[in-house]
Amino acid sequence: MLADWQYIGIFLAISPIFPAAPVLLQWLLGPKKPNSIKNSAYECGIETVGDTWIQFKVQYYIYALIFVVFDVEAVFLFPIAAAYGQLSLFAIGATALFIILLADGLAYAWAKGALEWI
């Protein structure tokens, strides 16, 4: 088991090399003549007005929240699916209840209009 994670650890450790090599090569080969116009933020040729980091709409947050709930649900479902061969009918009923309860949440969000993009 630990040998598996050793492989992934080594992979994680040396994987930055692969993007680093071309970026470094470009840094060596490319010209370096920055000026203020070249470095300004791109906005169709006109000057940027105001701050970039502004308040976003709440809709993104709601989608992210529903996503978190279903993500956690999936985390519970994966080991159950992997152990499917050893499950009794009771276990499958329990899992079905679990899924239906969460589907309820989705139905509630739908009925409340939380899924509308406005």
Partner: peptide, 23 residues
């Protein structure tokens, strides 16, 4: 396990109730 699902459901419903009036 089932309580976790109820907890998730409550979290979802609660957050929608809190977040919606803001819109």
């Amino acid at each position: 396990f089932e309580l976790a699902s109820v907890l998730l459901l409550v979290a979802l419903v609660g957050s929608i109730i809190i977040a919606r009036p803001d819109v």
